[in-house]
Amino acid sequence: MEHAWDFSAVFTNSYLLLIGLKNTIILAVVCLVLGLFFGLFVGAARYSTRIVFNWPATAFVEVFRNTPVLVQIMWFFFAFPIISPFDIDAFTAATLGLTLNTIAFSSEIYRAGIQSIHRGQWEAAKALGMNYTNQMRRIILPQAIRRMIPAFMNRAVELVKMTSLASVIAYGELMYQAKTISTIEFNPIEMYTSVALIFFVLIFPLTLFVQRLEIKSKGRG
């Protein structure tokens, strides 16, 4: 079937797409910052040998790793308000779903990063007479973080993509805006093509950056 490509309606509605882009970026940044911050604590709890910390953290991580994000977002928007005492708008529901998911994944990155450092490094630092804080700060974390950065960047890329799921609960991010415009203008081909391009332009530099980092981190232990 022939299709006459016509992007003019994309440009006339570009301000709506810009709003969508802005909301996409806000959602991604908020979820990434909160996710990485709280992930450190959940990761530390997972690393702990004490059951009071380890058990709840493990349960949390497993629940959010083993259920689809789309289900989590829908649950926080449609199910959670019924049992919660306060109102939940689309942004809050999306933020909850994506942040909790990011916490679960980043906590694993923190834990794995620290665990990946050979026991001998702890021992050498300890044998010099360093206390735990200095062992962590001077020897373990500088090596561990270098290994974590590519994984965190990958997570950021995934997160930007996952924000599009928030469209199902009518949060006005890029995907939702595109859907709205395309139903008015009857131009799904041009609209969704444009959205794909915008996401690509947004994410591709991140991906390139991750690849650069991975090559660099292979260079040195």
């Binding site: 050498a124 630092a125 044998a127 007479g129 040195r220």
Partner: peptide, 17 residues
């Protein structure tokens, strides 16, 4: 005490960074 006792390990354990 550990600061007063030097230790050398089988696997060297130098700090790679």
């Amino acid at each position: 005490l550990r600061a007063r006792v030097g230790m050398v390990f089988q696997h060297f354990n130098l700090f790679p960074h």
